[in-house]
Nucleic acid binder design. Structure first.
Lengths: 195, 195
DNA sequence: ATTTGACTTTTTTACCGAAATGGTCGAAAA
DNA sequence: TTTTCGACCATTTCGGTAAAAAAGTCAAAT
């Protein structure tokens, strides 16, 4: 079976799509645009994907998987849970920044009734919440952390990340990003009360 | 001077306006609606206010002042900075919840190009950041807190609050609100690292 | 197995007059 | 003098519609 070629073209289509989605958003990008960018006829897209939505989901999924594998690879070499959280935050925010165009495109369309985009967001919010919760639980089990209510704490932490994320979409202050992450982590680990 | 009556009518107009803005948002509320609600002719509104925007700003200002005075009154009887922060968070979030209709209305219109609403939001974001910063500074000066970079920490904290605020607009989980505030404050004060 | 042009169906756009809306002004009421 | 409002204007929104553009289908060609 010549699956290779098939996959290669599929991949090239997704790359074209990602570029365009990041630049123009979901709505403003047409199937024709994607096809042209990939030097194919529009109809060909439907040989590889069943719909525009599916293409978009595939693009997002690819980036999500890429992110997850970066995280997994990075964290598996780290023993200290605290350090894992540090790395997670740092990679997470920088990755977000790199993809901010795509995210911004999502965000714009997303408050325009595109409920399938909202579903995608919720899906990943849930996943992130779960991931954070697992990290915290592990830290507690290893006696590194001391947390009364892990569920609420995870939620607070996930919310805090999203709060940090929001202004990044608007003005891209790359300068302060690391400082802000540090500040958040410093609070998270040690709090502000003097001892 | 019979300023009393003037002020009374003005107030009644603002009450009508607030009700309607909270229900329908800025755009869907017409000057006629406000006038009818207050049993006046539309033209009369312009005797008390110069424009629709001004009415909206006045409504928001009233609520903001009300909030500030609640905060001031509550905090001035508290000596402990930590306790002040607790109270601030609690009142802040509950107040937000009470006004969530108005906020939601703002939020909807706000991503619809109403840049004057965006300005209002930014204004209050700035004020909140400043307020938080002052609280932290006071805590540090009184040797209650130990914070490396107050600016970044304030920013992180303000972001965290806004992150917590966001899901409240969507689903109104009153149940978990207090727990989540507690979780956030617990992190803020003591961190999660075991000692 | 892959591509595409011709085709159908659905969605968006452009445009129009009508209605609604924000805002003004001066006369009238209080 | 202070307050109210009807008549009025300018601009924006709305409803409906025809044309354009887009998504999606399919069978023939490669």
């Amino acid at each position: 079976m010549k699956k290779e070629k098939h996959d290669k073209i599929r991949k090239s289509l997704l790359e074209s799509a990602e570029q365009l989605f990041a630049r123009f958003g979901f709505e403003k990008t047409t199937m024709n645009d994607i096809a042209n960018e990939a030097r194919k006829g529009k109809s060909s897209l439907y040989y590889y994907f069943s719909s525009k939505e599916e293409i978009f989901k595939a693009v997002v999924t690819i980036e999500a998987e890429r992110f997850k594998s970066i995280i997994t690879e990075t964290l598996e070499n780290i023993d200290d849970t605290k350090e894992q959280i540090k790395q997670y935050f740092s990679i997470r925010m920088h990755r977000f920044q790199e993809l901010s165009n795509l995210y911004a495109a999502m965000r714009n369309d997303y408050l325009r009734k595109l409920d399938f985009i909202e579903k995608i967001r919720k899906q990943y919010d849930r996943e992130e919440l779960e991931f954070i919760q697992n990290l915290l639980e592990k830290g507690v089990n290893r006696d590194e952390f001391e947390i009364k209510n892990i569920t609420d704490t995870s939620f607070a932490l996930a919310s805090a990340i999203k709060g940090l994320e929001y202004p990044m979409v608007l003005h891209k202050d790359e300068t302060n990003l690391d400082h802000r992450i540090d500040a958040l982590l410093s609070i998270l680990f040690y709090g502000i009360v003097k001892r």
